[in-house]
Amino acid sequence: MSLSKNASADGKTLTIQIKGKFDFNLVQSFRQAYAEVNDETEKVVVDLRDTDYMDSSALGMLLNMKKTLGDSVGSIQISNCRPQLKKILQISRFDKKFEID
């Protein structure tokens, strides 16, 4: 379980990548990760390519991010979800608030 973040070469995209387990243990580090969003950031990507597990606390953290960032970024994308995680997001209607790729 770990979290890493990267700004794209042009500074417009902030990618937060979560490895392994996405649950409440990441509450602090996840908040810190999106605290780096600045005026240049147009898009935040939560990359779940390496995420095996998530539960409802992860959903809560994502919604908190959405609330905090509000309209300061153009879009928040949850990308590279495995099918089971994608289903969890769909069940929770996250496709209404996030771009799920």
Binding site: K21, D23, D52, Y53, M54, D55, S56, R82, Q84, L85, I88
Partner: peptide, 11 residues
Amino acid sequence: HRSNIFLLLSE
């Protein structure tokens, strides 16, 4: 099914 099983057990 481990992602789903994790979710159930975790909740």
